[in-house]
Write a protein that binds this DNA or RNA. Structure first.
Lengths: 242, 242
DNA sequence: CAGTGGTCTAGACCACTGA
DNA sequence: CAGTGGTCTAGACCACTGC
């Protein structure tokens, strides 16, 4: 219910039914309109507040925010889903899909023993035909087994894994910047040494075990990672926009 | 109450009273222990879940997560507060503090008219004596008036503004990578052209008007921006770690 | 099966804001 | 002052999990 409400509110803002800069309906009004108690209405509104679409309150009139971030998609996890949600056409070219024995880095980041089997997938990712990201994914064998049966040129590995019922619970991201190596530069069509945005991701399952890690290299300017940050309140929401 | 609870839970994990990888108490148990209803207990737990400190649930036993991110401080907004929270000593050297007329970029990003007064503060920021960030902040005049009375070498501009009662409501961040210019390279003690992490921030007040924008350039390796991302659920939390 | 978290209801009191 | 969101209570039903 509350997520249905949130979608409804978002579309009302997008359609101009709730004009930007004007007052938004109060919680009480929305409760009456939908015949719901405050719980789900508050939950939906807090999502929109976290997204920065509604501001004010606590005595102040609630306002639909001017100049809100648009198309702040959520997941850094799925390139394909993000690209489609942003209205672009995703593509990929697979550089490597292999089963190998864990080296020191893989053993440490996946928390497996040296020499345990791991699966690596390396792909250049395209947006509307233009290379925007170099993706280096590494899977522990439980997931890797499934990944070896996947055609990496067919699109979203994430939806494939989700369809397999894989247990992907949460990701930790660390962002920094690196200079492009000669190989990366060639694949991404930039100059060697030019700055790339590196997103290092570690994904765990619902019992906290590491199941995947990745180092994704984004070409700056073509894509950017964005997120909202409520000051004096921990509500946040992140996303990426082309 | 719920924030007090969240702090209590965090310290129990930090102290080992709730050992990592073991079962965490269920909501029902915590309700009994603290004599509270489910509301505040759930609110506190959802914060820890968003931080990745607790995983599982929905039938599965709740677990204290192994290898949780540590010191995932919240605000990209205040360098000083973040540095201190991370156990480091912040410092700064002011390069510029000026009142000027808005150029095209400032007018657009602050949504003021060309030529309106704006205040610029540019500072090199240090962590334990080492330069880690080049900060370029720009304020609309309402806030800028206050900023001109601030000694930028004294530390946190944010706490100064907060003490003045400034209305800072939410920030939007956009992250990409750029090559260091000669000036920036010299100030940050890196080579010209080496990659820097650029965080572009826009801060609005509680009625949605832009009050500040900033372009902060971080030296990679010394600091990194991190955040958690619950898959199949929009709960997130971001932070930065040295 | 009992236990888990996810969700919803229908009340309540508070601090704060704007008129 | 009336209206706002922030918070808490004390119930309830559900889908899912592990035993």
């Amino acid at each position: 219910m509350h997520s249905v409400l949130a979608d409804e509110f978002r579309s009302r803002i997008a359609s101009g039914r709730w004009p930007e800069g004007e007052r938004a309906p109060s919680e009480a009004v929305l409760c009456r309109e939908f015949g719901l108690s405050r719980g789900p209405v508050r939950q939906a509104l807090s999502t929109l507040r976290a997204e920065g679409l509604i501001v004010g309150g606590r005595g102040r009139p609630p306002l639909v925010r001017r100049n809100a971030v648009r198309h702040a998609a959520s997941a850094l996890g799925s390139f394909t889903a993000w690209a489609i949600a942003s209205g672009h056409t995703p593509g990929q070219r697979t550089v490597e899909q292999s089963r190998r024995r864990a080296d020191v880095e893989a053993a440490e980041r996946l928390q497996v023993s040296l020499g345990d089997p791991v699966v690596t997938v390396r792909r250049v990712r395209y947006l509307d035909g233009e290379p925007v990201m170099f993706e280096n994914q590494h899977f522990a064998w439980d997931l890797g087994r499934l990944v070896m049966d996947f055609d990496p040129d067919s699109g979203s590995l994430n939806s494939y894994l989700a369809a397999c019922g894989a247990d992907l619970y949460a990701s930790t991201h660390e962002i920094d910047a690196v200079a492009a190596s000669a190989d990366e530069a060639a694949d991404l069509d930039v100059l060697e040494g030019s700055p790339l945005l590196r997103v290092s991701r570690t994904t765990v399952d619902s019992v906290g075990a590491v199941v995947e890690y990745a180092d994704d290299l984004y070409v700056p300017g073509l894509t950017a990672i964005t997120f909202e940050n409520r000051l004096f309140g921990p509500q946040t929401r992140e996303g990426t926009t082309p």
